[in-house]
């Protein structure tokens, strides 16, 4: 169901944690609220879930105002960070916790376990499951009563990195198959970008930008968002007529038409390293090899005012650059320009 958060503010002892936050998540949409720790995103989640009351503003689900309802009457499922399964109940009873007793409920619980790929685990106790399995059970438990909205609070934080990606896919699949409206709260931009249909970037108690992941990445509203949602090399520049001039030369930029003094942001994958030629030249300072790709730190030659400018570029893993190589640096595609 559609979730509408409208103008929510919250202060704790004089400290403003949420400042007029509005957020709309459409029915069936998986939205990520992305922000650094302390930005207020968990407080937002707690207000939506009903554990905290807002000083101002309202929360509505499916068009019905739930601002003053207690948590148990909101029909909002939550999947907390550490799964938080009831340790004294079996997996089946955990999943069935939010359901009325009866045969239909048993069937529903089984269905939800199927949904997260854990049929056959019903009789286990939570401590007999791996971290990833626990997290999936937590999701099944949240989905079982058919909630209007599911909130996920940094659900993969406690998982091993290797496990995280696969659990992430499982969770997304399950949410999509259940057709659930979901809000994922996270500080991990990779997680947000890869899982969510839309990403709301939060900073200092405000939502700065909400859009599809690709759009947030490609057209961030400001420099802060740009650097938060992905790596970027930031260089001083001046812009005029759709071209931003900086140490890397005159680069076309896409965003908004503003002109004047400012900065450009260049994504690492936009750099193309070539044989040194007429353009910008630098020296490879460091190579971080990841297998499928590599990150190269390149110090540009200080011909003009670009004395000692350092960039980080992504290349294919088999490109074969070594420390000390001299390379030409070119930029592919449009860059981002922000007036300072």
């Amino acid at each position: 169901m559609r979730l509408e958060v409208d103008g929510v503010s919250k202060a704790f002892g004089g400290t403003r944690v949420l400042d007029d936050v509005s957020l709309v998540v459409d029915d069936g949409e998986l939205a990520a609220v992305l922000g650094p720790s302390g930005c207020g995103k968990t407080t937002l989640l707690r207000i939506v879930a009903g554990f905290e009351s807002a000083d101002a503003g309202s929360v509505a689900v499916g068009g019905a105002d739930i601002t003053s309802l207690p948590p148990e009457r909101r029909r909002i499922g939550i999947v907390p960070q550490e799964a938080a399964l009831f340790p004294h109940l079996t997996v089946r009873r955990n999943v069935g916790f939010g359901l009325p007793r009866g045969a239909a409920s048993a069937e529903r619980a089984r269905e939800c376990l199927d949904l997260v790929g854990l049929s056959g685990f019903g009789d286990r106790m939570p401590h007999e499951l791996s971290g990833g399995q626990q997290q999936r059970v937590a999701l099944a438990r949240a989905l079982a009563p058919g909630p209007g909205v599911v909130l996920l609070d940094e659900p993969f934080n406690a998982l091993d990195r290797s496990l995280r990606v696969s659990v992430r896919d499982d969770v997304r699949d399950a949410l999509k198959r259940a057709g659930a409206t979901a809000v994922l709260v996270t500080h991990d931009q990779e997680e947000a970008m890869s899982m969510a249909d839309t990403v709301a970037v939060m900073r200092e108690g405000r939502i700065v930008q909400k859009d599809e992941p690709a759009s947030v990445y490609a057209a961030p509203r400001d420099l802060g968002v740009a650097t938060f949602v992905g790596e970027a090399v930031i260089l001083p520049a001046s812009a005029a007529g759709g071209v931003a001039s900086c140490v890397l030369g005159a680069l076309p930029y896409a965003a908004g038409g503003s002109e004047g003094q400012g900065r450009v942001a260049v994504r690492p994958e936009q750099f193309v390293l070539t044989v040194p030629g007429g353009g910008t030249v630098g020296r490879v300072e460091r190579v971080e090899f990841f297998g499928h790709d590599a990150a190269l730190t390149v110090v540009l030659d200080g011909e003009r005012d670009g004395e000692g400018v350092v960039i980080r570029a992504r290349t294919r893993g088999d490109a074969g650059h070594r420390t000390g190589d001299r390379v030409g640096v070119e930029v592919e595609g449009s860059v981002l320009f922000f007036v300072s």
């Binding site: 948590p71 499922g77 907390p80 949240a142």
Partner: peptide, 23 residues
């Protein structure tokens, strides 16, 4: 016992009394 368990139970439709009794 972590308080988050009680919040989860609340979100699953249990009132404060039921949460105390069942969790």
């Amino acid at each position: 016992s972590p308080p988050v368990l009680e919040e989860v139970a609340r979100s699953l439709g249990r009132g404060p009394f039921a949460v105390m009794r069942q969790v």
